[in-house]
Design a protein around this nucleic acid. Sequence first.
RNA 1: GGUCGGUUCGUCUAAAGGUUAGGACUCAAGAUUUUCAUUCUUGCAAUAGGGGUUCGAUUCCCCUACCGACUACCA
Length: 534
Amino acid sequence: MSVRKRRVRFAPSPTGPLHMGGVRTALYNYLYAKQTDGDFILRIEDTDSQRFVPGAEKYIIDSLKWCGIYPNEGVDDNGNIVETASEKHPHAPYRQSQRKPIYKQYAEMLIANGYAYYAFDSSEELDSKRKAAEANKTTFIYNYQTRKELKNSLTISKEETEHLLATTNHWTIRFKNPEDEIVVMDDLIRGHIEVNTNTLDDKVLWKAVDELPTYHLANIVDDHIMEITEVIRGEEWLPSLPLHYLLYKAFGWTDSQPRFAHLSLLLKPDGKGKLSKRDGDRLGFPVFPLKWINAEGETSRGYREDGYYPQAFINMLALLGWNPGTEQEIFSLNELTDAFSLERVIKSGAKFNPDKAKWFNQEYLRIQTNAQLAEQFIPILKEKGITITEAANKNCNELKNTYTFNYVESLCGLIKERAHFVNDFWDICSYFFIAPTTYAPADVKKFYNANTKEIIEKVYNRIELMDTTNIHTIEEDLTTYIKENDWKMGSVMNTLRLFFVGEAKGLGIADIIHFIGKKEALQRIKTAILSLDI
RNA sequence: GGUCGGUUCGUCUAAAGGUUAGGACUCAAGAUUUUCAUUCUUGCAAUAGGGGUUCGAUUCCCCUACCGACUACCA
């Protein structure tokens, strides 16, 4: 007997940008598929015509692509949802709105076999019943009891049903829940679950408003047709699991029914409840992988635009609700694929921690080569008006604001320990490109007076004689000079730093002199003494 | 309200009946350093409460509390 090829799917609804929780769900599906050498399918669940958002589908695909998560079925090489079947994509179309004829026959099959019925109640009627029940502190459930008193194909004659179906479009198809049965379920993450069918609502399977199936029907039918073996989805679906079990049973598909794994939710960092877009705005972190601008023109920041490496983002998400059982925290996508297991997915909800996310990015920043960092930094430098030339040995200060790639590359090696993001680089090292124009008053007060002025003037002369091509000799020369004169190291160095940087912080003085060059270093000292005249 | 799920440091989590309850992030202190960072060291800090079962419960069972999801012709 052969084992079925593992086939999992990520089935988002294009109602807006993909939330980072959704990315995590996609990631777990992807890891599971890759690990078992199975298929990872992307299917668009756009059966809600009312909430459809243009651009959301593309956003989903782009986001997954940025994360390095490539579906091997459902999306073509150009990043489009596949609409016509081929060997590679045998189940096209992969957009549920385009699969409508498929669902209709299954809905009718259910009715023919007594597992579903037509219901003619209006939304308004049902709403008022719900409100009335609420007022009585009870709950209205459309089930084996109440359906007897409502207008549906079980209570009215066959003739009248047919008449209504033919003359109106105010009808839905509802699932007929069995009376007083225990549905026994098994979840890969949560284990054994039981529910009595009396507590279940006869859910709508087919909607009148847009003449489309609901999630429940479309999902089960597609998962069956597409031979899905594991359904890995969010916890919000757990309450519908009994219905889905019952649906598989009604269709006679129990033997090939997929196994289910319900992932816990991502929670907001503070307070209570699930992570939402508002939390990101409020606390200052992205909740979406990519920047998104909605129809009203409001922008939501994205991890990509905030300067996160997709590898760091994925790594962080993977560890939010799953762990390998070892102390390893940094994982490449391939390592995650090897290490991942549904058994080690956490049952409880995970509060998202933005600080830890930054830490992950820092770890990834540090393993970049200096050349890679330079490539990433150069676009920012260009925005700041800095020109980068290819010319190798050109004195970078001969042309105003022009520097070589090598200059940036070496500098990146020096500053990468100090940043979480490449986006931090400019603030950390702008003085390597442009001279300070102001000097922090507190530091001036602390490090500049008549005495230090005198010293610095001597140091100026010393620098003039120095070989500044080698960081090490600059350092040695400077420190011996300071010691010879019995000056205070901290005082002299910080005064120089103040003149070079504009404040008393930054890299080593030798590094700065070496990078900006002798001429520029001397110039900065002159400028500072002039502007801080005492 | 009902149904279902969950509960270990502030946060993410380890320990699948026997550990001084471990690690990471954050925070604090110290060391290094010419400053700021980095780095290193140390520290703070947890099994929700109550009953069982057991020689022994973070771990198994029950109750309570709390948290969450769902409760639409949304997914």
